[in-house]
Amino acid sequence: MATKAPAKKGTKKASAPKQSTEEIQSALLELFVDEIKDIYWAEKHLTKALPKMHKAASSQELKDAFATHLEQTQVHVERLEQVFELLDKKAQGKKCDAMEGLVQEGEGIIEDTDAGTATRDVGLILAAQKVEHYEIATYGGLAQLAKTLGREDIADILAETLAEEKETDELLTEIAESDINYEASEEEA
């Protein structure tokens, strides 16, 4: 059994230089703006991916869900542009590697499954829910950070989008549970 060596007397731990409250707030705001740019790019990228998912889906209920989510996503982009205005920043995106990867995963499901099958629909639902969970985590974190920064106006906008993302996730679960998962399990290989 290893034992800890006794601490040497007279030595101090190196500590980070103290930052002022203003410096901390500035760093948090910079991080916040950077993350807003990230989700802005992600939402705009999603507006290009959702029509592909809509086209690939066979269930009318799933097609309708993708069409509705595309409309919501366009509103989410507009809300983020409003956030940029409130921050006196130009609306611009910063490539979101996470969303790019999630969209590529969805495209892979389309390529790897047969058209018109419930199996493809199950895969599309899984891919879409991964996107929703990423968005839920992002909007939840950003809404809280906006509150920390004293920007309740922005937090309210982000919370509205967060609620819609959660609703979409729940809808996708309901669609999967209604029949699609069962139909996929009955398909011939």
Rank of each mutant, 00 (worst) to 15 (best):
148 T>H: 02
79 R>H: 13
184 A>M: 07
42 A>P: 11
108 G>L: 01
189 A>V: 05
95 K>S: 08
164 E>H: 08
37 K>S: 15
6 P>S: 12
7 A>C: 06
189 A>S: 09
10 G>F: 12
39 I>K: 05
167 E>N: 12
174 E>Y: 00
82 Q>T: 15
100 E>W: 01
107 E>N: 12
183 E>Q: 14
134 Y>M: 11
187 E>A: 09
184 A>S: 12
135 E>Y: 04
23 E>Y: 06
28 L>S: 10
116 G>M: 04
90 K>M: 10
36 I>C: 14
36 I>S: 06
14 A>D: 11
123 G>E: 04
26 S>H: 13
101 G>Y: 09
26 S>A: 15
52 K>A: 11
158 L>D: 05
116 G>F: 02
135 E>V: 05
179 D>E: 14
23 E>M: 13
70 L>C: 03
131 V>L: 12
99 M>S: 08
57 A>H: 01
169 D>W: 03
52 K>Q: 15
137 A>D: 07
121 D>N: 01
82 Q>F: 01
114 D>F: 00
56 A>Y: 03
179 D>I: 02
88 D>G: 08
24 I>K: 14
180 I>Q: 08
83 V>Y: 05
188 E>F: 06
77 V>L: 08
11 T>F: 15
154 I>P: 06
102 L>D: 06
101 G>W: 04
183 E>D: 13
46 L>M: 14
38 D>Q: 12
82 Q>P: 00
127 A>F: 05
45 H>P: 03
71 E>S: 12
84 F>L: 07
57 A>M: 03
54 H>I: 00
6 P>C: 01
184 A>E: 10
133 H>Y: 08
56 A>Q: 06
103 V>A: 14
48 K>G: 15
96 C>Q: 09
139 Y>M: 07
63 K>A: 01
164 E>F: 03
148 T>M: 09
25 Q>P: 01
15 S>L: 15
52 K>I: 13
65 A>P: 04
26 S>F: 09
120 R>S: 07
173 T>Y: 02
166 K>A: 11
2 A>K: 10
34 D>G: 13
162 L>K: 09
148 T>P: 00
126 L>Y: 04
155 A>W: 05
18 K>M: 14
1 M>E: 12
185 S>I: 07
189 A>N: 11
61 E>R: 10
102 L>S: 09
43 E>N: 12
59 S>M: 03
132 E>P: 05
170 E>S: 11
65 A>L: 07
163 A>H: 12
10 G>Y: 11
187 E>G: 06
160 E>C: 00
41 W>N: 15
114 D>I: 06
39 I>W: 05
